[in-house]
């Protein structure tokens, strides 16, 4: 448990020490949120340290595929308590399973100034 918190903290220190994600808009409000549910906060805590929710919400995967993805993310530093593993997989499978409607991405602003 404490080792995982150290990993999460170290990542956060590194990220907060560097300028805002290097050119990405600090005022952006376009990141999708994770859906409500018992695992929403834990999923946010584990996953959104390293990347935004958009990477998650665009996926449409089977449960078996979500197991693989969660395991890969844990290996790469995502802090997931063992007892949360299966509920997290279930949460992701239900909300971003193969039968969910297709994700519709956002577009960035178009520059209306003619060059």
């Amino acid at each position: 448990m404490s080792q995982r918190k150290i990993v999460v903290f170290a990542i956060a220190v590194m990220l907060s020490a560097t300028p805002l994600f290097h050119g990405q808009n600090s005022q952006s409000n376009s990141s999708s949120e994770l859906p409500a549910g018992a695992m929403q906060q834990k999923a946010s805590d584990a996953c959104l340290v390293c990347h935004d929710a958009t990477i998650i919400v665009q996926q449409r995967l089977s449960k078996a595929a979500w197991v693989k993805e969660v395991d890969k993310m844990v290996k790469w530093g995502a802090a997931v308590d063992p007892q949360d593993h299966d509920p997290l997989v279930e949460y992701l499978s239900v909300n971003f399973g193969v039968d969910r409607p297709a994700y519709q991405p956002a577009y960035s602003a178009a520059n209306k100034t003619k060059k």
Binding site: G23, N25, S28, T54, S108, A109, N111
Partner: peptide, 19 residues
């Protein structure tokens, strides 16, 4: 949604990920 987010140096792009 959010079709007006300004990404410096880029115009009218499909946002697959912000971070």
């Amino acid at each position: 949604a959010d079709s007006n987010e300004i990404i410096p140096g880029k115009e009218g792009m499909i946002v697959r990920s912000r971070r």
